[in-house]
């Protein structure tokens, strides 16, 4: 039984092959009844999610959406004054929002591709027959299990002018840098740290997904004379497409929402010279330091729309695996 099943299974991954054999069965029995039943079980499966996200996530978001059209007073008796789109138009003249947007965009453009590719390659390497892969898996994962506050501390220690990294560079007679206080480099320092800390998270997801690829696909390719790299590019990468979609979207969301590191590195100011100012740091400053919740919410909604647009663009660009309808 088993091998036959696996063959069928691997068939389904061959690109764009029509699969007419399942559908004909469906219309036989009461089509309406089946559809209703499907919807019912769908909602049954979704009910804990709808309940929890609805109350604890969607309601707060709707509230934030409402706030974004108002001038808000939260402390000492809540008060609203409807402003229409004023908070949104205000972003256009906000010099700092522009800087934050540019910084964030640069950050996203560099970090997302690098960490995705790095995660995929690491996972592929650790999924092959390498000696000591268990040890590698544990070591590579270290940055992910550590809380970001501890990581940042470690990095600050390594980055400071007389720290580990510069010592190492000067030992190799390479130029040293002022990693933290030089505006031209500060954001790069955070990027390096972020890639290093996040890639293992996605590596594990790729690793888990690779377990679902059956050996027979590879065996067939081996018989056809494909080498490791060809198998990786033509078999592994296409099969992993849905997971890559996840990894890229989560990478986009995570990098667009960069906060922790720039907050700790700059002491909350976004300096030096706004070089580590990110959109969420700006949102935080407005929300908590000036308690300007209305404007902060408008920025947050703007950010969400931006992420959605980028998501749609990348979806068009890569194309997502169609649902098995």
């Amino acid at each position: 039984m088993e091998p036959a099943k696996q063959n069928e299974y691997s068939e389904s991954f061959k690109p764009k092959k029509p699969k007419p054999k399942i559908n004909p069965k469906a219309p036989k029995k009461h089509p309406m009844g089946k559809k209703l039943k499907e919807s019912l079980s769908g909602y049954l499966f979704m009910s804990p999610t709808i309940f929890t996200l609805g109350i604890f996530v969607v309601v707060p978001i709707l509230y934030a959406l409402f706030l974004s059209f108002n001038d808000v007073d939260l402390l000492g008796g809540i008060g609203y004054e409807f402003l229409g789109l004023d908070n949104y138009t205000r972003t256009i003249d906000d010099e700092r929002a522009k800087i934050a947007l540019l910084n964030t965009a640069e950050y996203v453009a560099i970090v997302v591709p690098v960490q995705t590719i790095l995660a995929l390659l690491l996972a592929a390497a650790l999924n092959s027959n390498i000696k000591g892969k268990n040890l590698f898996r544990i070591i590579f994962f270290l940055p992910t299990v550590t809380s970001s506050a501890v990581l940042t501390l470690i990095f600050m220690w390594m980055y400071y002018p007389d720290g580990l990294i510069n010592n190492f560079l000067s030992f190799l007679h390479l130029p040293t840098y002022d990693w933290l206080s030089n505006p031209a480099i500060a954001l790069r320092s955070i990027m390096i740290m972020n890639i290093w800390a996040t890639a293992p998270f996605f590596m594990v997801i790729y690793l888990a997904a690779m377990q679902d690829i059956s050996d027979t696909v590879y065996e067939a390719a081996t018989i056809d004379g494909a080498n490791w790299w060809q198998k990786f590019i033509y078999i592994t990468v296409p099969i992993l497409k849905p997971v890559t979609f996840f990894v890229v979207i989560m990478g986009l969301i995570g990098t667009f929402q960069l906060f922790d590191q720039s907050y700790i590195f700059s002491g909350g100011s976004g300096g030096p010279n706004s070089s580590t100012l990110t959109i969420v740091l700006l949102i935080y400053q407005y929300a908590f330091q000036s308690l300007d919740m209305g404007y902060a919410s408008a920025l947050a909604v703007g950010l969400a729309i931006l992420i959605m647009v980028v998501t749609v663009i990348q979806k068009v660009f890569f194309g997502e695996e169609k649902l098995h309808d």
Partner: peptide, 30 residues
């Protein structure tokens, strides 16, 4: 992924959308 129920696309989109709002603005309402 697997059950074809009415509104599936909407719920999937909603789940993606909630991820896109930074928690800094939902902290106080939560």
């Amino acid at each position: 992924a697997r059950i074809r129920f009415a509104g599936r696309k909407f719920w999937f989109f909603l789940i993606l959308a909630v991820l896109m709002i930074p928690f800094q603005v939902t902290l106080i309402p939560s």
